[in-house]
């Protein structure tokens, strides 16, 4: 099942959704847009393990990871 992984103070929070469920899919897309709107960066991992940053919601991605906006230390 596709999973959205959001980094937070607990380590991470995972949201699993059924890509065939229209309502769940809409909710996942809304979460994607909300997190990106707050400055988070979404990254997906391909079948071979390669990681890339994505800019749009991909309902077929098995794992989408969100990390907060980067700032200089």
């Amino acid at each position: 099942m596709p999973t959205q992984i959001v980094m937070d103070h607990t380590g991470d929070t995972r949201h699993v959704f059924d890509a065939n469920d229209v309502e769940a899919l809409a909710k996942a897309e809304e979460r994607f847009k909300s997190l990106v709107g707050k400055g988070s960066t979404p990254a997906v991992r391909g079948p071979a393990g390669e990681v890339r940053i994505t800019r749009s919601f991909d309902p077929t991605a098995q794992e989408t990871l969100f990390y907060p906006r980067l700032v200089g230390g």
Partner: peptide, 9 residues
Amino acid sequence: CFVPRGPLV
């Protein structure tokens, strides 16, 4: 030095 914002582990 660059880090994601917030109290992350």
